[in-house]
Design a protein around this nucleic acid. Structure first.
Lengths: 121, 121
DNA sequence: ACAAGAAGTCACTTTAAAGTGCGCTACCCA
DNA sequence: TGGGTAGCGCACTTTAAAGTGACTTCTTGT
């Protein structure tokens, strides 16, 4: 494979936390280890397939780790790795900025809303 | 339009700085006002169409402002709005984290490289 | 006369991301 | 004996994002 070239750091970051779901998943995992089903409930719009797919990709990037308990029905949980925790501050700021952005847009009359603001626990 | 609903702040943030190009453009504009052609040269892989399209979207979100000088050939430049500047810290951290990520992956033997590290000026 | 230069639009086409639906496992409980 | 449960894989289909190439405008330099 020909060397993959980045031109600026943020490119690499976005490759990892970009996309529709990854940053959302990570924001939830910031607070505590979560089981698959817990994550699915926390992110109601995501499909089962997207959830596992995104988690696999985050695992491959060494951002989350996956613990499988050998039992039936299966029990699997996910948490941030130490390296993943190095994203925690950024994720928090992304959440806060977004909350502020929503406030502003609401104040400007846009018809939008934010369901839960329990990001900060 | 039916009320648009976010479930977590980061969702809104990503809608604005997500995608392949927006965060890269913003990282460049963090340092100084730039002309269209300057941006195009700073981001060699982007097409003319993508560049203007993304800039229009950022303008609509009140993150960048566009100044048109009434002359021919046209001269247009872009800069962060005051509100856009509130993203500056986050963008910087995203760049730094990405640079570190690239370093780690190189150290781990991945065949990747980072061309310019002149994000911080 | 005529090419070049700067920014941008238009009409498509391509590609990658996301979504859907179904099936499997193995155990517990009524 | 068969329904519920938790997590996952697979095979597609859909949709949105990104890419391409041609065409405009008016002025300056050759």
């Amino acid at each position: 494979m020909p060397t993959k070239t980045y031109h600026i750091g943020v490119e690499a970051t976005m490759e990892i936390i970009g996309g529709k779901w990854k940053s959302i998943i990570l924001c939830h995992l910031r607070h505590h280890t979560m089981r698959t089903g817990e994550l699915a409930r926390a992110i109601p719009q995501i499909s089962q397939k997207m959830l596992t797919q995104q988690l696999r990709e985050l695992e491959a990037a060494n951002i989350v780790s996956r613990h499988v308990y050998k039992q039936v029905p299966p029990r699997v949980d996910y948490s941030l790795t130490d390296y993943g925790k190095s994203l925690s501050g950024i994720l928090h700021e992304l959440c806060l900025w977004g909350e502020d952005n929503i406030d502003r847009r609401q104040a400007a009359g846009e018809d939008i809303s934010l369901m839960s603001r329990d990001d900060v626990i």
